[in-house]
């Protein structure tokens, strides 16, 4: 046990956790609202979309790939599912089925192109982003949907406890989906052999093939999974803002990349944890929320996010440098 703790203290996650604890502690002292339950629920709901996407992107990045098309995928899934819901009474199962399966199909297109084109994932997904997005805007003519079914707008929540005054302790659709996405991703990566194959593939693609892992299938699975989570995230976002706009999601890809990267995943593949991604997301979310609560103009929140990203990537670069030196010394001595 002692060994495990010692190992953890040397990880990127541990340092992130320290920063977050210090930040949250200070915020709790200086702004009473920060530690309130309502604030927590608000922050979690507002970041659910980015969070669910980051869980999917983490899996892609661990294989050494990247996906920039998921926001377009989400827009298509969202638009289609809720347009159908506006005309037919398909209910929650129906819209989930539509948006997830659309997400998977579009994700698989990426996976197939990745397996056949043999060019960088960045280029493939920029191309598919343009195709998906262009087709969506052409078909919809860029029109928003403002009236959604009432049952959808109402959402749903799990009520844990209602106190005497009638105030309830409940978690909403967004938070449930967010936790579910991270839980499923964690199970996939750490408790299934496929997840371990994904790590192995990201760490050494040639060796993965030599050991006999089916890397073509792994690529399909990873991009398909990303698509499925994009489908879920799209509904989460539509429910939160109570409307659907084909142009609202595209352009947020790099925010998701930032969360995953701050969480310690390397774009070279092979590394990255669910825990790290959660912490990376939390760091950005708490920072933005905290500064607003402290009365800092919200116009400056993006700048601060930028500084955090720079600090995180510089810290990681230093760590890699140090580690590299250690290994070299270890080999020669």
């Amino acid at each position: 046990m002692h060994e495990v703790i010692k190992r953890f203290t040397r990880t990127h996650e541990f340092r992130l956790l320290l920063v977050i604890i210090v930040m949250a502690g200070l915020l709790a002292v200086f702004t009473p609202e920060f530690a309130s339950l309502q604030n927590l629920v608000d922050v979690l709901s507002a970041n659910a979309f980015i969070g669910i996407m980051s869980a999917g992107l983490l899996v892609v990045i661990i294989t050494g790939g990247i996906d920039l098309s998921f926001a377009a995928t989400a827009s298509i899934a969202q638009y289609t599912a809720l347009t159908v819901a506006n005309h037919f009474g398909i209910g929650w199962t129906g819209i989930f089925a539509i948006s997830i399966s659309l997400g998977v199909v579009l994700g698989l297109i990426n996976g197939v192109l990745m397996n056949t084109l043999r060019t960088s994932a960045l280029i493939v997904t920029i191309a598919t982003l343009n195709v998906f997005y262009g087709v969506l805007l052409t078909v919809t003519r860029g029109a928003d949907i403002f009236s959604l079914p009432d049952w959808f707008n109402a959402g749903f929540e799990l009520v844990f406890h209602t106190d005497a005054q009638g105030a309830s302790l409940a978690i909403n659709f967004q938070i449930i989906a967010l936790f579910a996405a991270f839980l499923v991703t964690w199970l996939l990566l750490n408790r299934s052999n496929i997840g371990r194959q994904i790590y192995a593939f990201g760490g050494n693609p040639d060796a993965a093939q030599r050991v006999g892992f089916n890397v073509v299938r792994l690529n399909l699975l990873v991009y398909g999974y990303m698509g499925a989570l994009a489908g879920v995230a799209s509904l989460v976002q539509a429910q939160l803002v109570q409307s659907v706009s084909p142009t609202a999601l595209v352009g947020r890809e790099l925010d998701v990349v930032a969360a995953v990267v701050i969480g310690g995943a390397s774009l070279n593949g092979g590394s990255g944890t669910v825990m790290g991604t959660i912490l990376g997301l939390a760091l950005i979310a708490i920072l933005q929320n905290g500064l607003i609560l402290l009365g800092v103009s919200s116009y400056w929140s993006l700048f601060n996010t930028g500084l955090v990203i720079i600090a995180a990537v510089v810290m990681m670069a230093m760590e890699t440098k140090k580690r590299h030196k250690l290994v070299v010394q270890g080999v020669t001595s």
Binding site: N190, R191, S192, N193, I194, G195, R196, Q197, Y199, A200, G202, G203, N204, A207, A208, V211, G212, F213, G270, S271
Partner: peptide, 23 residues
């Protein structure tokens, strides 16, 4: 070898092959 995995997992990597299953 897989540099990002542990010694134990590298040695037992064969256990990860095949159909979907729990680790």
């Amino acid at each position: 070898l897989f540099p990002n995995l542990t010694v134990a997992e590298n040695i037992s990597i064969g256990l990860h092959s095949g159909r979907v299953k729990a680790v």
